[in-house]
Structures are given as structure tokens and as C-alpha cells.
Amino acid sequence: MKKTWAAYPYIFWIIIFTIVPMGLLIYFSITVKTPTGTIISMDNFRRFTEPIYLKVLARSLTLAAISTVCCLLLGYPAALFLSSRDLRHKNTMVLLMVLPMWMNFLLRTYAWLTLLERKGLINTLLGKIGIPPLNLLYNDFAVVLGMVYNFLPFMVLPIYSVLSKIDHSLIEAAEDLGADPLRTFLKVRLPLSLPGVMSGITMVFMPAVTTFVISRLLGGGQYTLIGNLIEQQFLTVGDWNFGSAISLMMMLIILIGMGFTSRYEKEQEGGGLW
């Protein structure tokens, strides 16, 4: 009895902040405003399949995928390193990894603006050793860099937490049976860490595919990603119906993605921050 009462505030919370907004989103996405009134129509979804919007979707997915792969390539070795047993000051290292996240996300992204500018710190230093200024800002590179920088901890932490939970006797057993370090890694550590990798991928890919701040600031407004498109529909154009339809399509894509990873995680013991 007690337990059900305790759940009410949370149910109330979910209704107000999840169910009702979702209902509104669906309502807006399947209606169209016409001079004679609001009518039910699938026009918004049909519009989303126009080449110009599909191109935006493809670009968002590509950039997010590139960032996720970069995060994985950078993050896995980092997690491996952090989880190794003979590492001294391990907690300090983990703390340093997380520390930038204590600072505001916008500020961190703005900081990159001044670093990458034509007269920014990096180009000034390059100039000192005789390299002409590079165009570092307002291109794919800057956007991917911003994503990787901001989302890297989301990749490292889940992998780290799974790796450090691996029963060390398994590794010892592999070594006792004559496996070299590479073989131990491939046959024991890597398969056991996959759940962490999976949750890392979801946790990086999802914010990366929907971001609009990074592409706005570091892309200079010329990289319309799906997040920018949604923002534009709500804030500049005022077409809530189309904006809602894009948001729903996006949720659908993420849901499918989640379906893949969670099916995988069920087989193994899930790790990570979820």
C-alpha cells in the first residue's frame, strides 16, 4: 500500500512532463493549419520525405556516426587504461575525465570558438612555427570536434565501469592457459566489455544526432542538422506542426536504434549509466 502511494508523485510527474507533451507532439504532427481551420493530415510527414529534408537527416546521421566512431576509438583505450589494475591515482584520473562536465556545456563550446578562430590560439601558435593560418572553424571538422569533445565522457564512463567490473580471475585463467596479452584482450576483455560499448554508443549517438548548439556555434549556421531544422520550425518559422513531425520521426529513429542495443544488452549483464 505504502509503495503505491509513494509512486504517485512520480506518476504525476511522468504524466505532466512525458505523456502530455508526447500527446501534444502527436496531435501537432498529424494536423495542418488551413485558413478554414485545423484538419488532420499526413502532409507534415510527407514533407519530411522531400529530398532537401532527407539530405539534412542524412548529414545529421553521418556526422553523428563519425563522432561516435571517433569517441569509440579515443574512448576505448582510455577506458582500458583507466581500468588497468596497476594504475596509480586511478580515482584522480577518472575525476579529471569527468571534471570538464562540471562546467557549462555552452561555455565549453564557446571556448572552442576562440581556440579555432583564424586569429585564435591554435593558429597563432602554428603561425609562430611558420604554418599559414588554417580554416579550422565553420566546417565539418569543427562540428565533429565539438561533438567528440563534449560527448567523449559518455563513451569512456560506461566502458570503464564494465571493464573494471570484469572478474580478474577470468583474465588470470586466460593467461594461465597460455594466452598472450592480445589474445586475452580479444577473447576475454573485449567480449565482456561489449555491453559498455553498446551503451556508450547510444549515449554518444543520441545527443550527437539531435544537437543544434554545436552545429550552430561551430558550424556557423551553415550546417543545418536535424536539431537545427526542428529548432527553426519552432522558433523562427512557427510551423509547430512540421516541427513536431520531424521530432517524432527522430524519436522513431532513436527508438529503432535503442531496440538494437537493448536487445544486445539483455543477453549480457548491462553496464553503464542507464
Binding site: I52, K55, V56, G221, Q222, T224, L229, D239
Partner: peptide, 10 residues
């Protein structure tokens, strides 16, 4: 105008 601008920017 909205459509043109979206198209240019994307």
C-alpha cells in the same frame, strides 16, 4: 521566404 532560407541553409 522561410522555404528559400531553409533550402539555402541546408
Amino acid at each position: 521566404f522561410d522555404r528559400i532560407w531553409t533550402e539555402v541553409k541546408s
